[in-house]
Design a protein around this nucleic acid. Structure first.
Lengths: 167, 167
DNA sequence: TTAGGTGCAAATTCTTTGCACCCTG
DNA sequence: CAGGGTGCAAAGAATTTGCACCTAA
């Protein structure tokens, strides 16, 4: 899975511009960590990124990778898969349904929609494997969090609090 | 968020039938753990289920909750949100895209689809909060895993291996 | 210069495992 | 009665934090 050079270049520009705008420093480590992730269409975890970066910057620390990854996430330069920095959650609702996920507190709400149940998946997906289920994931900020977010701080720092806001 | 009694009853029957069919014992703890999760439309994590069950069965242990939850998952009685027992993964692809998630190995593949990008979300979702993004999550078994799964063992035991199959 | 970044090591939290005893089928 | 299931305590992993030194702007 390779990503075109043109696209990678674009991602770098976006990165540098975002750093400037957000007033965060453009360090060697950040550059290399970004390079590591921007160049792949894999969905690496922190450990994997760490291993890759260490090949070029032997002194980086795993926690810098974590901080940078969350920084990039905060800057909107990358996203995460699934629930955000929360552990696995279980869902007893076996009816076909969909989720609204709050990106602040991690809360998940169910909703139903016959239209969405009837989604047709592009044929190209079949080449990945056999399909068991399909659902729509909507991300946003839930009403409760929107209210709390007084001054719109976005915590771009890459230093998350351990429990963002346990439900 | 409450779930109707009829539906709960149905879930219990399904549970007992599934246990019988899979040949796993129907213990007091399992019943109570199932009751705890079947009765809510929250999406609790293991810790939350544990607290709830402990109110009725003071001696349950957290690890029994974990085992039972994964057992229920293995039996197809509940599902999980997001990636399956994997840590957070990051995605550098900012283009609107969708995911195919392998339920065996956790690998995620991107795919694009103008049709899916154009999904219209039901108006009822707006009451949850503001929508930032929407994407489709397809779950299935990837080609690689399908090949490996020789005898179709589904690991219903609830005793997962620590690293199911690190990508 | 100087506030923001970094590396290190220790702390935390979340999960899983080993094992002896217990209970369902 | 037998083998799966359970609780406990300890091991392991994945993340985060405190802090003193370093460096981009």
């Amino acid at each position: 899975m390779k990503t075109g050079n043109v696209e990678i270049g674009r991602r770098f520009e976006r990165f540098q511009a975002a750093c400037r705008k957000a007033g965060v420093k453009l360090t060697h480590q950040r550059l290399e960590i970004f390079r590591e992730i921007a160049g792949s269409s894999e969905h690496p975890d922190a450990e994997t990124v760490y291993r890759g970066v260490r090949a070029r910057v032997p002194t980086v620390s795993l926690d810098t990778v974590y901080r940078t990854l969350w920084l990039l996430d905060g800057l909107g330069l990358i996203t995460t898969l699934g629930p955000r920095r929360e552990s696995v959650r279980f869902d007893p609702n076996l009816a076909h349904h969909h989720h609204f996920l709050c990106v602040q507190c991690g809360r998940a709400m169910d909703f139903e929609s016959p239209d969405l149940n009837a989604l047709s998946i592009p044929a190209s997906v079949k080449k990945f494997g056999s399909v068991l289920a399909t659902h729509v994931e909507v991300r946003g900020v839930c009403a409760a969090c929107a209210k709390e977010t007084v001054a719109g701080r976005t915590n771009v720092t890459g230093r998350p609090r351990r429990k963002p806001s346990k439900l």
